[in-house]
């Protein structure tokens, strides 16, 4: 019964989303970025296996700092590398960070949130204590500290962002599960003698899935932004064309009037983050049960 309700929730949400022109524009943008990310990753793997230098790493000092032209649509950087090719490669790094940090943060948050909300009592006290402790940590500095301790490179970034951002979703899930715990379908499942794990993960979880989806869309751009920041500082990605690294190198050249690398990279970051933010908002509105009343 509540499966049906769920289906119609998604169906309705999709209907509403389809009417929202801004949301659809953002969705197309997200799809485009996703395609680029996959393309970039495939390219990287291909060259990795063949052990060749991909186009985005091709240096050509004669071509350094060339303004956008028909050959290099977005110009070239200080080593004569094509900015556009590097930009596309940057998408796949941004996506990796967005997805892998979510794969760390969301399961942790969902797990703790669900058991805290469902069992209450001592379990709840423990989880609340755990997340208040994490929530007390000074955000960016804590991420930086984790990245420092784990070591430079993407792993530090994944862990730094992943291990600090589960708190928000944990709180949300806990609230949602507490709300659902009293509902008849849960009581019915309990009366049938189903195990707690089954009730939580097979019955309640599908009904709060929309919260997870919205959280994912909204935390994705935040993670991307943080990665740009960390890579900019030299703590994150080392040898791949990450957007943060590109901004860092472009920043110096900006003073000499070399504007293209900076402009196109910031534009790319902006569009990606904006698209996800707006889409997340639209999704939340479309799924918000308050508006269904």
């Amino acid at each position: 019964m509540n499966m049906e309700r769920n289906q119609s929730l998604w169906g309705d949400a999709w209907q509403r989303l389809k009417k929202n022109r801004i949301a659809m524009a953002c969705l197309s943008l997200v799809v485009l970025f996703t395609v680029l990310a996959v393309y970039g990753e495939v390219l990287y793997r291909y060259h990795d296996i063949k052990d060749t230098t991909p186009a985005y790493q091709n240096t050509d000092l004669d071509m350094a700092f060339k303004a956008p032209s028909s050959k290099h649509w977005m110009g070239t950087d200080g080593l004569g590398r094509d900015v556009m090719a590097r930009l596309v490669q940057g998408v796949s790094i941004a996506y990796k960070v967005g997805i892998i940090t979510s794969l760390i943060a969301i399961p942790i948050g969902v797990f703790f949130g669900c058991i805290a909300g469902y069992f209450g009592g001592k379990v709840d006290d423990f989880v609340v204590w755990l997340y208040s402790t994490f929530a007390s940590m000074p955000g960016l500095l804590f991420i930086l500290a984790i990245a420092m301790v784990v070591g430079k490179g993407l792993l530090g970034i994944y862990l730094g962002i992943g291990l600090t951002t589960w708190v928000g979703i944990c709180r949300l899930m806990r609230g949602e599960v507490i709300k659902h715990k009293g509902q008849t379908y849960v009581l019915a499942a309990q009366a049938l003698g189903l195990s707690s794990g089954r009730i939580i993960f097979r019955h309640i979880l599908p009904n709060v899935m929309h919260v997870i989806i919205v959280t994912f869309t909204l935390r994705f751009p935040a993670a991307v932004g943080t990665e740009v920041f960390l890579s900019f500082l030299g703590i994150g990605v080392q040898d791949q064309p990450s957007w943060g690294l590109m901004i860092n190198s472009a920043r110096m050249r900006l003073w000499q009037g070399i504007w293209w690398e900076m402009t196109f990279v910031t534009l790319a970051v902006f569009l990606l983050v904006l698209a996800f933010n707006l889409l997340g908002d639209a999704l939340r509105d479309a799924l918000d049960p308050r508006l269904n009343d």
């Binding site: 932004g225 740009v228 900019f232 901004i247 910031t266 902006f270 983050v273 933010n277």
Partner: peptide
């Protein structure tokens, strides 16, 4: 405000 939010701090 969404646009403001989406601009990276670095920028």
């Amino acid at each position: 405000s969404v646009a403001l939010m989406s601009i990276n701090y670095l920028v």
